[in-house]
Design a protein around this nucleic acid. Structure first.
Length: 426
RNA sequence: GGUGGAGUCGCGUAGUGGCCGAGCGCGCACGCCUCGAAAGCGUGUGACGGUGCAAGCCGUCCGUGGGUUCAAAUCCCACCUCCACCGCCA
């Protein structure tokens, strides 16, 4: 068992130095404290196992070397000693491997330490600001009714072909979606991001390293025959992209914009959002992903939020920005801001974007580091943020609907629908 | 899917059981030389874990995971990746 390989992703010094910080975070999330105790105990046990194995290895090495130089008469005794030590080393290494595995498991059970998020659960978010004014629509049609009038979305045939929560985007629906994604990609490139089209299937270490096999493992599709996972966001392949590398961040953060289809099982959401394309098993997304110095992560998080709002402004829908409460964060996030758009048919706000600061949580698991000012490798921070998704069509169609069932196309999207300003029912 | 070849400390390579717990070249860093530079000469050159205030010390790492052996880069098994050719197919 190589201590380097298994333990490289685990950096527990901060926890040892200040366990109170992690305990406070667990409390804010509403998570039990015993996971921290288990982690500390596993860390302690592993260190003892490593020390013991190291000592035995050194003794065995010496014994082994003395076999060669031993005289003919001493040789049998020396050989016996070496053999006995070899057996002890084997046992000690097995113990160390078990301790490594136990530590890893304990480590995976502890979510990221929250940073500044409001305490509490799903309902305890804080509204940071409201942007735009909800339109005054007498009897708003919902997005599916509008889309069916425009022949833009076909959920019946989606269900026929693939089942519930699947759909076809047809005609102007397909054009709007492609336009939206291209607009997002173009903005990202303008802002200095490297455009990427990523794999939508990833290997287990990548899915595990990004934190999606924690509390929300049931959300992830797995292909049994090939031991691969379908990604729920291109955040996953983009995080895996630099797995095991030491990055050069001397010129600033590395920023990528990933385009991928995304797959989610939506387990446990039966009966929720069953109409239309608000909650579906497959959708498309342009996602921003950043590797940076942890010292810059909080500032970068604000930049990601600003870029999301820049994109929202282009589609001209009213939205609010919320600071998600600790208990509603994914296991990898230290803080998360969502932009929620007004959905007239529901009279409420629904999430269109989500940006998370994962600090060093993912990078530690994936072994992604950078060289600090002294040239020493340090774990970097990762952040992500949504730039556009299929769900945006819901907000666009509903907020720009007209009494006759037509839809005004936001100016930025017109080039993608043949220059039309208005989409009218067929 | 089949056959053959290959994966070594940033890069290129040497290396078929203990003198390789890893040599050499390049690159890089520092020093000498020089008015300055080049060339030349010399020294150094990674990661991870453990331990220590620290200098340091110890252990691990030759694609990955197992195995054989007192001892593995080297032998055996499985897997991954890359290259070449063949077959099949968007």
């Amino acid at each position: 068992m190589s201590p380097g390989g298994g333990a490289a992703v685990i950096d527990l010094r901060a926890l040892r130095d200040d366990p109170g910080r992690v305990r406070a975070s667990q409390a804010a999330r509403g998570e039990p404290d015993d996971a921290v105790d288990a982690l500390l105990a596993a860390d302690e046990a592993r260190r003892a196992a490593v020390t013991r194995a190291d000592g035995l290895r050194a003794a065995q090495k010496e014994a082994s070397q003395s076999v060669r130089s031993a005289s003919a008469e001493d040789r049998p005794a020396v050989l016996e000693r070496a053999k006995a030590l070899a057996a002890e080393v084997k046992a000690a290494e097995a113990e160390q491997a078990a301790a490594d595995a136990a530590l890893r498991a304990a480590h995976l059970a502890v979510p990221n330490v929250v940073e500044g998020a409001p305490p509490g659960g799903e309902a305890d978010f804080v509204v940071l600001r409201d942007v735009g004014t909800p339109p005054d629509i007498a009897a708003p049609r919902d997005h599916l009714e509008i889309a069916e009038g425009l022949r833009a979305i076909d959920t019946e045939r989606g269900a026929k072909v693939a089942g519930a929560r699947f759909y076809f985007l047809t005609g102007v629906g397909a054009l709007l979606q492609l336009g939206l994604l291209q607009l997002a990609m173009a903005q990202a490139v303008d802002n200095g991001f490297t455009p990427m089209i990523t794999p939508s299937l990833v290997a287990p270490p990548v899915m595990e390293g990004t934190g999606f096999l924690g509390a929300h493992a049931a959300e992830v599709y797995r292909l049994e025959a090939d031991d691969l996972y379908l990604v729920g966001t291109s955040e996953v392949p983009l995080a895996g992209y630099h797995m095991g590398e030491v990055l050069d961040l001397s010129a600033g953060p590395l920023r990528y914009a990933g385009w991928s289809s995304c797959y989610r099982r939506e387990a446990g959401s039966y009966g929720k959002d069953t109409r239309g394309i608000i909650r579906v098993h497959q959708f498309d997304k342009v996602e921003m992903f950043v590797y940076c110095d942890p010292a810059e992560a909080a500032d970068e998080h604000q930049r990601l939020l600003a870029w999301e709002e820049e994109m929202l402004a282009k589609v001209q829908v009213p939205y609010r920005v919320i600071d998600t409460a600790a208990g509603d964060l994914g296991s990898s996030a230290a803080r998360k801001f969502d932009c929620e758009a007004w959905v007239p048919s529901q009279g409420t706000y629904r999430e269109l974007t989500s940006t998370s600061n994962c600090t060093t949580f993912q990078a530690r698991r994936l072994g992604i580091r950078f060289r600090d000012a002294d040239g020493r490798p340090q774990t970097c921070a990762t952040l992500n943020g949504t730039l556009a998704t299929t769900r945006w069509l819901v907000a666009i169609l509903e907020n720009h609907q007209q009494p006759d069932g037509s839809v005004v196309v936001p100016a930025a999207l017109r080039p993608y629908v043949g220059g039309r300003e208005l989409l009218s029912p067929a």
